[in-house]
Computed example of a mutant assay.
Amino acid sequence: MYSLNKVYWEVREGSGTTSIYGWVSVRAGAIVGFKYFDIKEVSEISVKVRGTGKGELQVSTTTSGEEVARIPISPEKDWLMYTAPMKINDGVNALYFYQGDGAIDLYSFTLE
């Protein structure tokens, strides 16, 4: 069975400007992938999420590959930033995020 993830957009207008924000809604058991990043000396990943997800957000370079990070998350209605160590080889890689318990909205991620 496949879970379909949704992409949401929010438009905010004010002070003569318009800003557009987007995020991906990740259901329990679903995998969301982003391609491709030229990884160089990355040792940490941060994610900005909200939702009912709890436990760990798992990150890998393939849909069935070895995890390169596990990010502890907690249920929260507001956007929160979570950070975890990341062990990933330098080079061009895809990143896949898997959430096993609950659902989250993934607003952004940062590699450092």
Rank of each mutant, 00 (worst) to 15 (best):
F34G: 03
E66P: 12
A30R: 11
L95V: 02
S46F: 02
G65W: 03
E76G: 14
Y21I: 08
K40S: 09
Y2H: 12
P75N: 02
F34D: 09
G102Y: 05
R70I: 06
K48V: 14
M81F: 09
L4S: 10
G16A: 05
E44T: 05
Q99E: 13
L106Q: 08
R27A: 14
D38W: 01
A28I: 00
T110L: 03
S46L: 02
P85V: 02
F109G: 03
G29M: 11
V49H: 12
G55F: 06
Y107P: 00
E66D: 15
K87R: 10
M1Q: 04
K87D: 10
I20F: 12
E67D: 12
I71S: 01
L95Q: 03
Y98G: 00
K87M: 01
M1V: 13
L80N: 07
P85L: 00
V49M: 09
T83H: 03
G16I: 04
M86S: 03
G16P: 06
V42W: 08
M81D: 08
G29Y: 10
L106C: 06
V7F: 10
V11C: 12
G55D: 06
E10Q: 14
Y36D: 15
S19C: 00
N5M: 07
Q99R: 03
F37K: 13
E67P: 08
S43Y: 13
W79S: 01
S60C: 10
G51L: 06
V42P: 10
G51H: 06
G33M: 06
V42Y: 06
G22K: 07
T63N: 07
I88G: 08
G53H: 02
E10T: 15
N89V: 06
I45G: 00
Y107A: 15
S43C: 05
T17C: 04
G14E: 01
S3W: 13
R12K: 15
A84Y: 00
N5T: 04
S60F: 13
G102W: 04
F109R: 09
T62E: 15
K6V: 11
G91Q: 12
S108L: 07
I39Y: 05
G55E: 04
V47A: 05
Y82K: 15
Y98K: 09
E10I: 11
A69L: 00
R70Y: 04
K35Q: 11
D78E: 15
G33W: 09
E76K: 15
G33A: 13
K6P: 08
N5L: 10
V11I: 15
E44W: 00
F37A: 09
P75Y: 05
T18Y: 10
I39N: 02
G100L: 08
Y98R: 13
T63Q: 14
Q99L: 15
S60L: 10
Q99N: 14
R70W: 00
G65P: 03
N5K: 03
S3G: 08
L95R: 00
V32Q: 07
S25A: 15
D90M: 02
P75V: 01
D90C: 00
G16N: 05
T62Q: 14
A94R: 12
T62R: 14
E13L: 12
K6A: 14
V42T: 11
V59C: 08
S46I: 00
S60W: 13
G14M: 00
M1I: 09
V32S: 02
G91K: 12
N5R: 07
